[in-house]
């Protein structure tokens, strides 16, 4: 009975691993194959690995390096702007006596009910009119619509963990409000800021709907650029796999680094909006 149960558990665990790891692993394997190896039937698990696809994707005529750059500019720009706006706001919501604080919190939540498609239609018209289509500022500003509420909520939860005596002690010690915020409070939420930065970066890197509508020849993140390798006439399978792996790399690295905090980030973010892409 006991052994039967542990056998069942092991089996389920194995299925779980295979089901969730395989698609990713398979993409990685394919990215090291030649076109023929990918198209082989039955699928080949053992083959002679080659870097040809990566060479082509990175340094070939259709190099995606500009697109990787584009993705980084968008994600870093969004992250920096979001944090500059979110940290002071979160501090005020978490710590200060503001009338209508609950209303403000509810407003932030409510903004997340609006489906992204409902945001992009009006923004498309606005950006087209002011000539901001295919610009970094256009896409970064609209990314605030999902990154900012998420970052505020996550940061509020970190600010709330700090005892109130911190501000009081600093005040008695002669520090003004801004000095207190900068010297006493911010250093204590460094960890929270790091986690928030990771999540905002992830969400910006992964965003797709806004990018599809707003991107062009200048601003063209990897998630959009991968379609370069898929066309009606032919699909460049190996290169597509290589691009997918390159696009996965930064977020997987960040995700693994932040894995301890990921549940908190996901729950705060998703209740309050961030998990939407």
């Amino acid at each position: 009975m006991k052994t039967l149960r542990s056998l069942a558990i092991s089996l389920a665990v194995l299925v779980f691993i295979i089901a969730w790891v395989f698609p990713i692993l398979w993409s990685v394997l394919n990215s090291f194959k030649t076109e023929q190896d990918i198209l082989a039937y039955p699928p080949k698990f053992f083959f002679e690995p080659t870097l040809a696809a990566y060479r082509e994707v990175l340094f070939g005529s259709q190099s995606i390096l500009p697109n990787v750059w584009s993705s980084f500019v968008i994600s870093i720009g969004t992250t920096v702007l979001t944090m500059i706006l979110a940290i002071p706001a979160a501090y005020a919501l978490a710590r200060l006596r503001v009338p209508g604080k609950r209303g403000a919190g509810f407003y932030i939540l409510a903004t997340q009910m609006l489906p992204p498609v409902g945001i992009i239609i009006p923004y498309f018209l606005v950006l087209r009119n002011i000539g901001w289509m295919d610009t970094y500022q256009g896409i970064i500003i609209i990314y605030l619509s999902f990154s900012l509420p998420f970052a505020i909520w996550l940061m509020v939860s970190y600010f709330e963990d700090i005892p109130f005596e911190m501000e009081e002690a600093a005040a008695v010690d002669g520090a003004g409000r801004l000095t207190t915020l900068w010297r006493i409070i911010i250093p204590q939420v460094k960890g929270g800021i790091a986690v928030t930065v990771v999540f905002v970066f992830l969400n910006a890197w992964n965003e797709f709907l806004f990018a599809v509508v707003l991107s062009g020849n200048t601003v063209r993140p990897v998630t959009i650029a991968m379609f370069n390798f898929v066309s009606v006439e032919q699909t460049l399978w190996a290169q597509l796999a290589a691009v997918s792996v390159i696009a996965m790399l930064p977020v997987v690295v960040l995700g693994v680094i932040a894995q301890q905090h990921i549940v908190k980030g996901l729950t705060v973010g998703a209740v309050k909006g961030g998990g939407r892409r």
């Binding site: 992830l202 992964n206 998630t223 996965m248 960040l254 995700g255």
Partner: peptide, 15 residues
């Protein structure tokens, strides 16, 4: 398992 579980979650749905 936590690391395995994180992989799909952090990926772009487009990818």
């Amino acid at each position: 398992f936590r690391i395995i579980a994180i992989l799909p979650v952090v990926l772009s749905p487009a990818i």
